[in-house]
């Protein structure tokens, strides 16, 4: 086959065109969002979480029954069109109690995570940034506290301080913040020797500004992941404590206390145990899956 020269045409080059960026630039968080959206399991978890939070907010208003009102003529009713999830041994509506429990569980999880975040970022940030003896002392303190078995300490505190929502969150956060502090410290240690921190220092920024404007925002990814994975842990701990009789006191409903109440009657009235049990598992599942998805999306290198 003959190819003649006139079939070709000189296009020429334009320097300005060659350097043109044709795709819109992606910010870090947009990129994360795109990666997260591709993860089907994580998206499923996010939708599940949205439904659970929606029901925690509006669920108690969907039924005419109150979560704390006893109705002894209607106790241990099977799930029906009247009582959607049945009733318990005092005739209380399990549907209303389940969503009241959702509020408490999610509240405990988020509150514990926020307190851990606050103490952990402060402790880890100062320890990592100051370095030297301060770092050594602060981290040794954390190490010793970390050696104390978590659940045993929580149980001990609940026994001594008495049951209640506040005590429970306090008990969980006493050793809970250490994990966050370690992660923040590690981040700060590796970030503080970067050039932009030096630049900020030369420009006269003080420590708190460098922390707030440079170090913490750049550590956001692992902080966020740790937080999302703290929440299911706290929800589990609440359910566990309530299940061994150290949780909230009636008439407050939490999933753990409901499961605890339902256990002796499992043979005859299994729904009293199953509804809270299913929703504890679903909530922990949703938070875990979202946390995993977030970790993969924030740090693609970790993705396997």
């Amino acid at each position: 086959m003959q190819i003649s020269k006139d079939k070709f045409q000189l296009v020429g080059t334009k320097i300005s065109e060659a350097e043109k960026i044709s795709k819109p630039s992606l910010s870090f968080w947009k990129d994360v969002f795109i990666r997260f959206r591709k993860n089907k399991l994580a998206m499923f978890g996010l939708v599940l979480l949205a439904i659970l939070i929606f029901m925690a907010i509006f669920g108690p208003y969907m039924t005419e029954y109150d979560y704390a009102t006893n109705d002894l003529t209607n106790k241990n009713q099977e799930p029906s069109s009247e009582h959607w999830f049945g009733t318990d041994d005092l005739g209380r509506d399990v549907f209303a109690r389940t969503w009241e429990g959702a509020r408490i569980s999610i509240f405990i999880g988020v509150a514990a995570a926020l307190i851990d975040l606050f103490i952990g970022v402060l402790w880890g940030g100062i320890s990592g940034y100051k370095g030297g003896r301060t770092d050594e002392m602060m981290m040794r303190f954390a190490d010793v506290l970390y050696g104390v078995p978590y659940l045993l300490l929580v149980i001990l505190l609940m026994v001594v301080l008495g049951q209640g929502l506040g005590t429970m969150i306090l008990a969980m956060t006493i050793t809970g913040w250490i994990n966050m502090a370690r992660i923040v410290r590690g981040q700060v240690l590796s970030l503080k020797s970067q050039e932009y921190v030096l630049a900020a220092k030369t420009l006269g920024a003080n420590t708190s500004r460098i922390m707030a404007k440079h170090l913490i925002p750049n550590s956001m990814a692992p902080i966020l992941v740790t937080m999302t994975l703290t929440i299911p842990n706290a929800i589990f701990t609440e359910a566990f404590l309530s299940f061994i009789g150290l949780g909230l006191t009636p008439p407050l409903a939490s999933w753990g206390t409901m499961a605890n109440d339902g256990l002796p009657a499992i043979r005859y009235y299994p729904w009293r145990l199953f509804f809270p049990a299913i929703f504890i598992s679903l909530t922990i599942f949703a938070f875990n899956v979202v946390g995993d998805g977030l970790r993969d999306a924030l740090d693609p290198r970790l993705r396997k």
């Binding site: 399991l41 299911p232 589990f236 359910a239 566990f240 299940f243 499961a259 049990a277 504890i280 598992s281 679903l282 922990i284 599942f285 875990n288 899956v289 995993d292």
Partner: peptide, 11 residues
């Protein structure tokens, strides 16, 4: 595995 992590042992 995710289910095993999410379902607490007592449940």
């Amino acid at each position: 595995a995710v289910a095993g992590i999410s379902v607490p042992s007592f449940i």
